[in-house]
Structure formats: C-alpha cells, structure tokens
C-alpha cells in the first residue's frame, strides 16, 4: 500500500459517501409536511444522478470482487470491497425502489443505453486479458466497464440545467480517485520489480481522460465562483 493508493481509495469512498448523503437529503427532505425551499427544489428538479451509471458501477464491483471470499488480501481490502459492493447496490435500490428517492430520478433524461457499453467491454475482455480464466476475464471486464461507466452520468449532466453541488462533487471525486490510482501505478512500477499491468494502466488512463473536460469546467466554475455548467 502506498499513499497514492490510500488517497485514491479514500477519495473513492468519499464519492460514495457524498452520493449517500445526497440520497439521504432527498429522503429526509420529502419527509417534511411542508416542502422547504431546498426540498422543493430537490424534489422538483431531477437529482442529476444517472441510474445507468450506478447500475454499471454495481456490475463493475460485482465482477471485480468475485475473489472477495477466495483470495484474502487484507482486512482493509475486504472491508473496502464490502463497502463498495454494499453502497453501489443500495444506491441502485434507492433510485429504483425507494418511494421518495425515485421521484427525484429523471428517467426521461437518463436515456443512455448502457447495454451498448457492457457488450463491447465483455467482448474485449474475452479477447484481451492477462489469463483466460472465468475470474480473470470478468475482472478484466470490470476494468473496461469502469473506464466507460461514467459516460451516462456525464451525458446526463450536460442535459441537466442546474447541476447541484453534491452531484458535481460526486463526479469530481469519482474522477480524482482514478487519477490518484495512476500515480499509485507509477509509484509501484518504479518500486516493485515485475509490477506491470498494461490492461489496468491503459483502462485507468482512458477512464481519467474521459473526465478531462469535466475537470476543466469543474475547476473553472470553482475559480470563477459560478455554478457548474457543462456545454450541451
């Protein structure tokens, strides 16, 4: 474990916590007898969260952590896997099933057919992988899928008029965690002999590059202290 990877994991955890906080806000807000102004805005405007991206992430964790009970790495590793699995599936459940949260989900805007991402990633994983075994192919699939999983969310943000802070921070943290992982891979490449994982590195790089324009608009909205807005 190195500082870059720990920072990356913590950033990833933070992004999940921000999303859970946002869902909690929507839930608690609708509980009020009279809609406060914030609640009114939250419930009326779409939450800006893409269910498609959340479902893709649940699939990413499900296919990546198949070895959670067979290969014990460390207590930290197992606990983090359980947190990511638990949170990603519960977020999908909330947006799909929860009587209040699902009202804030705008399915007419979140139209990205994520099936078009799943199939090519699966085919690619069958062709390009480190070892042609069931677990390894699914692990590679999860890497390719995670690289593109943010696309439905980024497209939804372009369509969402006013991106609220929590959603913007969620996407930023999600992009930042993989950027930190790239530093971790560079560090491990120079400090550990034989540490070479091209598949991981390239998909991690592609994933981070997909956030490039978001990062640009996110930082310029911070610098100019204006509302985050992605060009359509």
């Amino acid at each position: 474990m190195n500082i870059f990877r720990l920072a990356g994991d913590m950033t990833h955890l933070m992004s999940v916590l921000v999303l859970l906080l946002k869902i909690h806000t929507i839930k608690s807000c609708a509980g009020k007898s009279y809609p406060c102004s914030l609640c009114f805005i939250l419930l009326e405007s779409s939450s800006g969260i893409s269910l498609k991206t959340q479902e893709l992430y649940a699939l990413v964790f499900a296919t990546r952590y198949l070895d959670i009970f067979t290969d014990f790495i460390s207590v930290y590793n197992t606990i983090m896997k359980l947190i990511f699995l638990g949170s990603s599936f519960s977020i999908v459940w909330y947006i799909r099933r929860h009587k209040i949260v699902r009202r804030s989900y705008d399915k007419d805007q979140d139209t990205f057919r994520h099936f078009f991402l799943v199939l090519p990633c699966l085919l690619l994983a069958l062709i390009i992988n480190e070892k042609f075994t069931f677990k390894e192919v699914l692990w590679t699939f999860s890497l390719y899928l995670e690289a593109v999983a943010i696309l439905p969310q980024l497209i939804l943000l372009q369509r969402t008029r006013n991106i609220d802070n929590l959603t913007g921070q969620y996407v930023f943290l999600l992009g930042a965690y993989r950027a930190l992982y790239i530093l971790n891979w560079i560090y491990r490449y120079f400090t550990e002999p034989h540490y070479v994982h091209w598949i991981t590195w390239i998909s991690g790089l592609v994933q981070t590059l997909l956030y490039a324009d978001f990062f640009y608009y996110y930082f310029s909205s911070l610098k100019n202290n204006v509302k985050l807005k992605l060009p359509a």
Partner: peptide, 10 residues
C-alpha cells in the same frame, strides 16, 4: 494464492 495472480488493488 501467489501474490502475482491475486489482484491486490480495489
């Protein structure tokens, strides 16, 4: 499991 094959990152 030998460390090499086990993926030790999240």
């Amino acid at each position: 499991t030998d460390q090499e094959s086990a993926h030790d990152e999240l």
